[in-house]
């Protein structure tokens, strides 16, 4: 297989404190990788390194571009990196306010990426926005409503639509179901699962919720103090954890 993204010995230090250290893995197209661990374990640092928002102190992130070339993110210009981020990548944030323009209608939120890559036909943009609203199960009648009038679950779904409209190949998700009611979570997870499978998306998913990791991911990295302490097939890591910390993590989950 030809990996989409490869992390090579990624390290990041904040002074004497370790952000993350010597992280290495390869992500295949269509693969969902969960990064789990508790707060402060380096999950978010790693996510920012992988998406080029933070420069590593050592190591590299290699990404296979749509034209087939594989490039170190650090070698891309700011303009190239941003273009990549708004066409070939998606970002789903825990707090929709970081991922949406709250003052802009749902249609405008979805259309932004299209306009950003030069679409100048209002009718076509709107048609596309309608189609995506339908796909993420938001009533198309709400196309001109602002996200401030949406529920938490709808905002997350709108965030997803806004990202997927340019058909990205890789989506970064940071606790996409965090802070939502359990009932809303289930529906969102099912939607994400369906989209990931239908569109063949690769996903890097940061979560501390092992149930979310189990439902969505193929593979898990367990992080502690900036290190990856265990990695493997999701159900293997959760059902037969090898490391002491993973055993603690898994055994601490309350069964419903």
């Amino acid at each position: 297989m030809n990996p989409l993204l490869v992390a090579e010995g990624l390290s990041k230090f904040y002074g004497a404190r370790i952000g993350c250290r010597d992280v290495r893995f390869a992500l295949e197209p269509g693969e969902v990788l969960a990064i789990v661990g508790e707060s402060g374990s380096g999950k978010t640092t790693l996510l920012n390194l992988l998406s080029g928002q933070l420069a590593p102190d050592s190591g590299a992130v290699r990404y296979r571009l749509r034209d087939g070339r594989t490039k170190n993110l650090l070698d891309l210009s700011e303009a190239e990196r941003r273009l990549l981020a708004r066409t070939d990548w998606g970002f789903v944030h825990q707090d929709a306010r970081n991922g949406l323009r709250m003052g802009v209608s749902a249609g405008g939120n979805i259309g932004e990426r299209l306009m950003g890559v030069g679409d100048r036909h209002y009718g076509r943009i709107r048609e596309n926005a309608m189609a995506w609203l339908g796909r993420v199960e938001i009533d198309t009648g709400r196309i001109d409503d602002k996200p401030t009038q949406f529920s938490g679950g709808m905002r997350q779904r709108l965030q997803i639509a806004r990202n997927l409209v340019t058909h990205p190949r890789l989506v970064f998700m940071d606790e996409p179901t965090g802070g939502l009611d359990v009932s809303v979570q289930a529906r969102l997870l099912d939607l994400i699962r369906g989209l990931v499978a239908d569109l063949g998306l690769a996903v890097v998913l940061v979560t501390h919720d092992l149930a979310v990791a189990r439902l969505l991911s193929h593979r898990i990295l367990v992080m502690k103090d900036g290190h990856v302490i265990e990695a493997g097939l999701t159900d293997r890591v959760l059902d037969d954890p090898q490391e002491a910390y993973t055993q603690l993590l898994v055994s601490s989950v309350l069964a419903a």
């Binding site: 493997g232 097939l233 293997r236 037969d240 090898q242």
Partner: peptide, 9 residues
């Protein structure tokens, strides 16, 4: 069974 399925290491 689980070891064969890769569920156990």
């Amino acid at each position: 069974l689980k070891a064969i399925y890769g569920n156990y290491l």
